[in-house]
Simulated assay, not measured.
Amino acid sequence: MDEQIKATLLELLKLDLGFKHTARDTYLNKLLPSAEKELIRKGLTLDMNKDDDQMLVVDYAAWLYRNRQEYQPLPRNIQIRIHNRAIQKAGTSNVIQ
C-alpha cells in the first residue's frame, strides 16, 4: 500500500473516531493493515485504490478500535458490506479465456 493511501486511511479513521491529535497515530497505523488483513482472511479481495474498499477497511478498523476492551457484535451495515463483497467475488468467473 502506498504512503498516500496510508495517510488517507489514517486521516479517515481519525475523523471517524473524532481524533484531532497525533497521540494514537502509532496504534492506528498498525490497526489499519491489521483490519485489511482480517477482511482478506474473511475471503475478500480488496483494491486499496478504490474508495469503497478504503472505507470498508476504515469502518472495520474503527469498529476494532472501539471494541478493543470488550466484544460487541459487528455492526449490521459492515456485516452486509462484507457479505455483499463475498457474494460479488463468488459471482465472478475465474476462467481464463
Rank of each mutant, 00 (worst) to 15 (best):
Ser34Asp: 14
Leu56Asp: 10
Ser34Arg: 09
Asp52Met: 05
Ser34Trp: 03
Ala23Ile: 03
Val58Asp: 07
Arg68Ile: 11
Leu15Gln: 13
Leu9Val: 03
Lys14Cys: 08
Asn29His: 05
Met48Tyr: 02
Val57Thr: 07
Asn49Ile: 01
Asp16His: 15
Thr45Lys: 11
Thr45Phe: 07
Glu38Leu: 13
Gly43Ser: 07
Thr45His: 09
Arg68Pro: 03
Lys37Leu: 10
Leu32Arg: 02
Thr8Arg: 11
Leu64Ala: 04
Leu28Glu: 04
Leu17Trp: 14
Asp53Asn: 13
Arg68Thr: 08
Arg41Lys: 09
His21Cys: 13
Leu15Pro: 00
Leu15Ile: 04
Asn67Phe: 10
Gly18Ser: 07
Asp51Cys: 00
Ser34Thr: 14
Leu44Phe: 09
Asp51Leu: 06
Asp59Leu: 12
Arg24Gly: 00
Asn29Cys: 10
Phe19Tyr: 14
Tyr27Ile: 05
Ala23Gln: 10
Thr26Glu: 10
Val57Gln: 02
Ser34Asn: 11
Thr22Gly: 14
His21Glu: 15
Ile40Val: 11
Asp53His: 14
Leu44Gly: 08
Val57Ser: 01
Arg68Gln: 15
Gln54Met: 15
Leu44Gln: 07
Pro73Lys: 09
Glu70Pro: 10
Leu64Cys: 08
Pro73Thr: 12
Met55Trp: 08
Ala61Phe: 12
Asn29Leu: 14
Arg66Gln: 10
Leu56Pro: 06
Leu64Ile: 04
Asp16Val: 13
Asp52Lys: 09
Ala35Trp: 00
Gln69Arg: 14
Glu36Ser: 08
Lys20Gly: 13
Leu44Pro: 05
Asp47Arg: 11
Asp16Ile: 09
Pro75Gln: 01
Thr26Ala: 07
Tyr60Ile: 06
Leu28Gly: 00
Gly18Thr: 03
Asn29Pro: 00
Asp59Asn: 14
Leu39His: 03
Asp59His: 06
His21Pro: 06
Leu9Asp: 00
Met55Cys: 02
Asp52Ser: 10
Leu31His: 02
Gln69Asp: 15
Pro73Phe: 10
Glu11Asn: 03
Leu39Phe: 08
Ser34His: 12
